[in-house]
């Protein structure tokens, strides 16, 4: 039973929720109705009300698209590499930093490692091009002067995935480590002291104290990561893309950009985006369930 007194106390709190709630309603929920154009032959001049409903045609077109499997494969391969190699990188950085005992050293290294997070992809890719360009890049010039062959790092499709992955790690691992460092700072130092008394080595301490302390954060971040199994971030891939590496670099985001914004095929690009979101949702739910079954706390 909610009494008058309850509301008097609770009302200010509810009012404080209001701006956030409005934000989600106006900017997240209302635009969702726009998804309906995925089922239309949408023309901006007829509007959502006037355009013709065509059911699942856009999705049929997507699945029969010659490039559909290519897009799916590229998206999944890149995401898998990302989840297996990039995802553990910040954890490793956090563990290493945690072991550093000299305070100024730890601080300096941490700052250096997370600084790249503030550099935009345009600049990162630009620098990479300057350094690794086949004909004029500094590194290739050096390689040649030492008698090695030039490496077509930016145009040979074989290198694309690794260039992309390493740039991700370079840019993101320092920043990503912050959250794990925060989790580690919550560990009771008494645990380490006790372990040391018992004669546990550094490695054993790591295995039995540090890692268990991190596991909650790792699992939650991993579940959230799985929700983005179809997302790669448009900008980075788009900047690295050129006609030579398209077979490995064309992913859903770049495809949506090309058909939606460059060709103005709004319905089709919305359908592709919706397909992506549905897969993402399924992945989050599945991994969440899996985590719970393994005895970990899920996201919800």
């Amino acid at each position: 039973m909610m009494t008058h007194g309850y509301w008097r106390r609770a009302l200010p709190v509810y009012l404080m929720i209001l701006p956030g709630l409005l934000y989600f309603i106006v900017f997240k929920y209302i635009p969702m109705f726009g998804v309906s154009i995925a089922f239309m032959d949408y023309s901006p001049f007829k509007g959502i009300g006037g355009s013709e409903w065509i059911g699942w045609d856009q999705f049929r077109r997507l699945f029969s698209e010659g490039d559909f499997w290519l897009l799916l494969r590229n998206t999944l391969v890149l995401n898998l590499l990302d989840a297996l190699i990039f995802f553990p990188a910040p954890i490793l950085v956090a563990l290493l930093l945690n072991e550093a005992r000299v305070k100024w050293f730890k601080g300096a290294v941490q700052t250096i490692l997370y600084a790249p997070n503030f550099i935009s992809w345009v600049v990162i890719v630009g620098i990479t091009l300057q350094l690794f360009a086949t004909g004029s890049g500094a590194i290739n010039n050096l390689l040649e002067s030492w008698g090695y062959d030039r490496i077509e790092l930016m145009t040979d499709p074989h290198y694309f995935r690794w260039v992309w992955l390493l740039q991700n790690i370079w840019q993101g691992s320092g920043w990503g480590a912050i959250i794990f460092l925060a989790a580690l700072s919550a560990v009771d130092p008494a645990l380490y002291e006790a372990a040391e008394m018992d004669g546990a080595s550094r490695l054993r301490q790591l295995r039995h104290i540090t890692l268990p302390a991190l596991s909650g954060a790792i699992v939650i971040l991993f579940i959230l990561r799985m929700g983005h199994i179809m997302d790669l971030g448009f900008e980075h891939i788009f900047l690295l893309q050129n006609p030579m590496n398209q077979n490995v670099s064309e992913v859903f985001e770049t495809f949506i950009y090309k058909i939606g914004l460059n060709q103005g095929d709004y319905s089709y690009s919305t359908a592709v985006g919706l397909f992506k979101s549905v897969i993402g949702l399924v992945m989050v739910l599945t991994v969440n369930k899996l985590a719970k079954r393994l005895g970990q706390e899920g996201v919800f």
Binding site: F45, G47, L261
Partner: peptide, 27 residues
């Protein structure tokens, strides 16, 4: 420009005067 033109037209509010390349004009 192409991107901008598609966004502007999707909003349903065209500027009064636009200079267009042939592909966009035809479209």
């Amino acid at each position: 420009f192409v991107e901008k033109m598609n966004v502007v037209s999707a909003s349903g509010k065209m500027p009064d005067v636009i200079r267009l390349d042939p592909t966009m004009f035809q479209k």
